[in-house]
Design a binder for these strands. Structure first.
Length: 603
DNA sequence: CAGGTTAGCACC
DNA sequence: AAACGGTGCTAACCTG
């Protein structure tokens, strides 16, 4: 056995590397004395847990003063003892346990279901204290950031530098070093061990700092994280043939249109500089500049030229779109696919400052919604249909409920059309649905939730600034409760530096942007409405059918024979009442592919 | 030249 | 007085 001593906050802490079955006996002795709680971490070959050849390399257990590193990659008793320890310990502390649990489930075959009930994640804790990363002025949420802020800045720098240093030693990149580094590498082992000591220490420090209003969220966030790891693990079935064909078609499109653009002197349509140059040479006036002073070639300008049948603009746009679609979506799915033809998302349940989730792997939140083509790549299981349940006007309903605006509450109570109501406030009671005025009402409703004003409304509607200003004024007059609420939140945020959401989450608000307090409140509370709904549906037994959460929606694959029933059940579980407002849900049953929800002609 | 930043374009 | 919130991904560009 090798033992290293490191100093943390003035204390000597020890990292033991288990090197023999005799050492393993000593480790077991340590475990026996620490069965109540152990900190836990893993080192693996990378982040793509479901890829071929993925391996677990080290497993670490520890407490505030001691860490033990087990070389499980060697197999044998190291694995057996790891499994025994994980099953026996009463509480597991870690940082982003969602990752380690998925790894353990995949590589050692311990179902996550066995581990989640005893999980305590210091990342969840950290995000309830301060959800911002350092770039946004926060403490940060990485282990390095937390160590720097709460424990020891020097140690944080060492942590940061370590893997880069080893990568240099191995003449490789940071991303690849994890599968290459020698299992016996001393520094690799030391820092693997430290990754249990740090969370063990952070837990106690952070525990005292969670706002009282947010304490109830600790358990809630663990449950949400749990359910989302089940979705990650299950994955989403890919229609391989369709996806491969689509990739080829997009590739052909890209080549065809790139060639046309090249004839105009633009070798690379993805270089904004080159496109700008050709446009200028063709007499197009470009006056907007980016913050760094470059000429801006916005989509609006290209769109306008395309409408005028400008051959170059058309080629640029089509080539760019084909490439974007292929590389970002279609080839991404094919690369991400596991041996069973499934893609696995990685859901970060507390990504945004507001608590909103983010989804990588399958970037479900950013897939084109105007078109079924990309979503058609994903299909329901054999004998299943795609089901989607979402909230009706979730953010506006939440806004009505939280602001207490009487007109808005009344509108939802009587199922009136809020966009029409705003349009009528601005342009008169004669305004009808699906008119230009109606659209302006809709845009204004959303702009106000986002904190936008007349300028934004003007840009998006095409109205003049003065006309847009009138619409915004009409909004504020028709929904005075909303305006008052926005002012109140802005003042609160200026006074305290944060606001507290309906569900008790504390959200920091920048002083220079107090107007965004309303949006944070609405966006964050809406996120929690969705999560509460997902949890109720999960507890009712619908977990196995869930595929992806998408903001105000849950996407599922359900046995076709019961899809209609199941969709309505989930919709019922997800609907929620906040004060005087019912946050209603919509259930939709599609056919075989996700794309079927986006077109009546798609299977 | 790896790694970080910027610009642009997807979504709610 | 007015104030556009949040995300991911790629390619190009910049930097040490």
């Amino acid at each position: 056995m090798q033992t290293w001593t490191i100093h943390v906050q003035g204390d000597p802490v020890r990292v033991h590397r288990v090197e023999s079955y005799e050492d393993l006996e000593l480790f077991k002795e340590f475990v026996r004395k620490n069965l109540r709680v152990l900190a836990f971490d893993t080192e693996t070959t990378g982040l793509d847990i479901y890829s071929r050849g993925y391996r677990l390399r080290l497993v670490q257990f520890g407490n505030k003063n001691e860490a033990w590193v087990l070389p499980v990659e060697l197999g044998g008793d190291y694995i057996t003892v790891t499994i025994q320890t994980l099953m026996a310990v009463e509480k597991i502390v870690g940082k982003n346990l969602a990752f380690d649990f998925k790894v353990i489930d995949r590589c050692l075959g311990i179902p996550m279901e066995k581990l989640w009930p005893k999980a305590f994640d210091v990342e969840i804790q950290a995000k309830l204290i301060d959800p911002r990363d350092t770039l946004k002025g926060g403490i940060g949420v990485s282990l390095e950031d937390l160590v720097r802020h709460y424990l020891d800045p020097n140690l944080a720098d060492n942590v940061k530098g370590l893997m880069s240093k080893i990568a240099k030693e191995y003449k490789t990149t940071k991303a690849k070093v994890f599968e290459k580094v020698d299992l016996n590498h001393p520094e690799y082992n030391i820092y693997a061990g430290m990754d249990t000591i740090f969370p063990a220490r952070l837990e106690g420090i952070q525990n005292k700092l969670i706002p009282a209003s947010a304490v109830q969220l600790i358990h809630f966030e663990h449950e949400i994280a749990e359910v989302c790891t089940y979705m990650d693990r299950g994955g989403f079935l890919l229609d391989l043939e369709y996806t491969q064909n689509l990739s080829m078609e997009l590739h052909e499109d890209e080549e065809k249109y790139s060639e046309i653009a090249a004839r105009f002197g633009c070798e690379n349509v993805n270089s904004t500089d080159q496109v700008a140059e050709v446009l200028l040479s063709r007499g197009v006036v470009l006056k907007d500049r980016t913050p760094t002073g470059k000429l801006q070639v916005s989509k609006t300008i290209l769109d306008k030229l395309v409408k005028e049948n400008d051959e170059f603009a058309i080629a640029v746009q089509k080539a760019k779109k084909a490439r974007k679609w292929r590389t970002t979506w279609v080839d991404g799915f094919l690369n991400n696919m596991d041996d069973n033809g499934r893609c696995h998302a990685s859901i970060n349940t507390l990504q945004a400052r507001t608590g909103r989730m983010s989804i990588t792997g399958i970037p479900a939140q950013t897939l084109p919604a105007s078109d079924y083509t990309i979503r058609k790549c994903f299909v329901a299981e054999e004998g299943h249909s795609i089901v989607s349940v979402d909230y009706k006007g979730q953010e506006l309903r939440v806004l009505a409920a939280l602001s207490g605006d009487k007109t808005m509450i009344d509108a939802f109570k009587h199922d009136l059309n809020l966009h029409l109501l705003t349009a009528q406030a601005a342009f008169g009671e004669h305004v009808l649905k699906d008119t230009k005025e109606y659209k302006a009402g809709k845009i204004t409703n959303f702009a106000r939730v986002f904190g936008g004003g007349a300028k934004v409304v003007a840009e998006q509607t095409g109205l003049t600034f003065m006309q847009a200003k009138k619409v915004v004024e009409a909004f504020d007059k028709r929904y005075p409760g909303v305006t008052n609420y926005a002012d109140k939140l802005a003042k609160l945020s200026e006074r305290d530096g944060y606001i507290t959401t309906y569900f008790g989450r504390r959200l920091p608000v920048d002083h220079s942007r107090a107007y965004s307090a309303l949006n944070y409140m609405v966006q964050s509370s809406s996120r929690d409405v969705t999560c509460r709904g997902i949890l109720r549906a999960y507890r009712a037994g619908f977990g196995p059918y869930m595929r992806l959460p998408v903001h105000d929606e849950i996407l599922m694959s359900m046995p076709t024979a019961r899809a209609e029933w199941g969709a309505n059940e989930v919709a019922r579980h997800m609907s929620e009442t906040i004060g005087p407002v019912f946050i209603d849900t919509d259930a939709e049953v599609g056919r075989r592919s996700w794309g079927s929800l986006y077109s009546p002609d798609v299977d």
